[in-house]
Structure formats: C-alpha cells, structure tokens
Simulated scan of single mutants.
Amino acid sequence: MHEMSLCESILGILQDQAVSQKFSKVDRVCLEVGPLSGVETEALRFGFDVVTRGSLAAGAKLDIIEPQAAAWCLPCEKTVSINERFDPCPECGSHQLQVTSGEELRIKELEVS
C-alpha cells in the first residue's frame, strides 16, 4: 500500500513546516487528491491516522478534496471533464486528449496551533 509511504511523506512535510513556521500542533490537514493520481482515499485516511499517532499531527482532522479531472481535446480544442485517463472526448469522441488536471496530490490547507 503506497498510501502509507505518502502519509509518511506528508508527515515529513508537516514536521519541516512546523520548524520553519514555528508551530507545535497540526489540527487539520486539507489534501487535494485528483481522481487520476492513483491514490485510494480511504487507504490514505487509514494511513494518515496510523502514521500521525504520537506526532504533532496526532488527532488532526483530515479533509480530502477530490476535484474533477479535465483534459484538453486537440481536435475540438476544448477543455472537457473526464472520469478516467483514456476516456474519449465527450464533445467529439476523439481520444487525443491531454490531461490538464486530476493528477494532483497536494496539501491545500493547514490549521495549526
């Protein structure tokens, strides 16, 4: 389960920010996880709870935002919503799509004390 290693990396970022921003506790973490990122959000939630035990983020609320994936269609020159990486363009049926969003995995917000 690679979500555990992702959670360990997130905790590392939180610890680094605690030093540079001078806070001692994380109360809430808001992550943006795109549907094309390859991350299972429930596994991420579980991993976050496990990895943060006994740390500055112990007991922190984890909010996950899951934005819609989008792609640029080369033939019809439109930005379209997609559900999966190899979906056809909903406008023209072409498979010549360039993903423009949906692969994100980033920390959007932190509430700290």
Results as ranks from 00 to 15, higher is better:
1 M>G: 15
2 H>Y: 07
2 H>G: 03
4 M>I: 14
6 L>Q: 08
7 C>T: 10
9 S>W: 07
10 I>L: 12
10 I>Q: 05
11 L>F: 08
12 G>A: 05
12 G>M: 00
14 L>W: 10
14 L>M: 11
15 Q>F: 02
21 Q>D: 13
22 K>L: 09
22 K>P: 01
22 K>Y: 08
23 F>C: 05
24 S>V: 09
25 K>M: 05
25 K>F: 03
26 V>Y: 11
27 D>W: 03
27 D>T: 11
27 D>G: 13
27 D>S: 12
30 C>Q: 14
30 C>N: 15
30 C>H: 12
32 E>M: 11
33 V>H: 00
36 L>M: 02
37 S>M: 04
37 S>E: 05
41 T>E: 14
42 E>G: 08
42 E>I: 10
44 L>V: 06
45 R>G: 09
46 F>D: 01
46 F>E: 00
47 G>T: 00
49 D>W: 00
49 D>S: 13
49 D>P: 01
49 D>I: 00
50 V>N: 06
51 V>T: 04
52 T>Q: 02
52 T>W: 06
53 R>L: 11
53 R>M: 11
53 R>V: 08
54 G>Q: 03
56 L>E: 02
56 L>T: 09
57 A>D: 05
57 A>S: 00
59 G>F: 07
60 A>V: 01
60 A>P: 06
62 L>C: 03
63 D>A: 04
64 I>L: 02
64 I>H: 05
65 I>D: 15
66 E>L: 02
69 A>E: 03
69 A>Y: 04
70 A>N: 12
71 A>D: 06
71 A>L: 00
72 W>T: 02
73 C>N: 00
74 L>I: 13
74 L>A: 15
76 C>H: 09
76 C>Q: 04
76 C>I: 10
76 C>N: 08
77 E>Y: 10
77 E>C: 15
79 T>K: 13
79 T>P: 07
79 T>S: 12
81 S>I: 09
82 I>M: 05
82 I>L: 03
82 I>D: 00
83 N>H: 11
84 E>D: 10
85 R>Y: 06
85 R>E: 04
85 R>P: 07
86 F>M: 08
87 D>P: 03
88 P>F: 03
89 C>H: 07
91 E>H: 09
93 G>H: 00
93 G>I: 07
93 G>Y: 01
94 S>W: 08
94 S>F: 02
94 S>A: 13
95 H>Y: 14
96 Q>M: 11
96 Q>N: 14
97 L>A: 03
98 Q>I: 14
98 Q>Y: 15
99 V>H: 02
99 V>T: 06
99 V>N: 04
100 T>L: 13
100 T>P: 08
101 S>W: 04
101 S>D: 08
104 E>G: 13
104 E>K: 11
106 R>Y: 14
107 I>N: 08
107 I>C: 10
108 K>D: 13
108 K>L: 14
108 K>N: 10
109 E>P: 04
110 L>Q: 03
110 L>K: 06
111 E>N: 12
112 V>M: 09
113 S>T: 15
